[in-house]
């Protein structure tokens, strides 16, 4: 037992170095004065300045945030409904197909999801005349579809862990099914719903492949803008943009993590208090 932890700890150190050195290197080089992105030419913040005055980047960011906000919200509603359904209704017609439908998008390669969506939208436009032009609406529909199943997975996992007895007790005390849903089930699983929304939001904000297939002229999201530039090589302004994105998301995830774990702790403490009162 003595020798093994030394080996394991050194692999852990190596692993975390592997995780973070590329990102740190990218952050350092975003302050590079040289136009050659990989050769150090002194400290400068000029790439940040040119980035912040680039209207194209702002437009792309705003479009991305709009799509992510709408798609994450709809995906959370649909995904939560599906998660509750799967956990609470063990027998209904077509349950097998339904559980297949909420797992298949998770393992479907993005290229195939993207192409099938694009073909679907093109044929729809030919047959019923909608969508006449691809853009915000088609991207949002595609994002909702593939991010709702992530919400379903999280909500379903949470529902399976929660105690059904509370819901049954509420029913026995005369609550209507929909009262049970809104007064008991949803508050209990609210941390899972919140993390599901966050996940759906970041998935949407980050997606390149499916967006690339479902977008149309004039609708360039931030990842698509980065994708078109990155294909041509490493540039210092993308380093700066990447640094801002990584730091924002990193700070956001850490803050969200702290808030969620505090809420969880408070919930556990409340439960303990409630049990103690019963004794």
């Amino acid at each position: 037992m003595n020798r093994r932890p030394t080996f394991l700890i050194s692999v852990l150190c190596f692993g975390f170095a592997f995780f973070y050195i590329p990102i740190l290197s990218m952050i350092v080089y975003s302050f590079n004065a040289s136009r050659l992105a990989t050769v150090w030419g002194g400290f400068s913040t000029k790439w940040y300045k040119s980035l912040l005055s680039n209207q194209q980047v702002w437009d792309a960011l705003i479009l991305s945030l709009k799509i992510a906000l709408v798609s994450a919200t709809v995906a959370t509603i649909l995904g939560t409904m599906a998660g509750i359904t799967l956990a609470r209704f063990t027998k209904f017609k077509g349950r097998t197909l339904f559980s297949g439908l909420v797992t298949a998008p998770l393992i479907m390669p993005e290229v195939i999801t993207g192409i099938s969506m694009l073909i679907f939208f093109i044929l729809m436009a030919n047959w019923v005349g909608w969508p006449a032009q691809r853009g915000f609406a088609t991207i949002t529909l595609a994002h909702i579809t593939f991010s709702m199943v992530f919400v379903t997975t999280i909500v379903n996992a949470r529902m399976v862990q929660t105690d059904r007895a509370i819901e049954e007790a509420a029913m026995d005390l005369g609550s209507r099914p929909w009262q049970v849903l809104f007064d008991i089930t949803l508050p209990v699983i609210s941390p899972a719903i919140a993390s599901g929304w966050l996940l759906a939001f970041t998935i949407s904000l980050d997606d390149v492949v499916i967006t690339n297939f479902t977008t149309g002229p004039g609708s360039t999201t931030l990842p698509l803008l980065i994708w078109s530039k990155v294909k041509l090589g490493v540039t210092p302004d993308i380093n700066a943009l990447a640094t801002l994105m990584v730091l924002t998301v990193g700070a956001g995830v850490i803050v969200a993590g702290i808030i969620l774990s505090r809420a969880e702790k408070r919930r556990l403490a409340d439960e303990r208090m409630a049990f103690r009162k019963n004794d």
């Binding site: 990102i23 990218m26 390149v208 990842p223 990155v230 990447a242 990584v246 998301v249």
Partner: peptide, 8 residues
Amino acid sequence: TSFLLRVY
């Protein structure tokens, strides 16, 4: 954090 940026 962004998949695309980790590749980048």
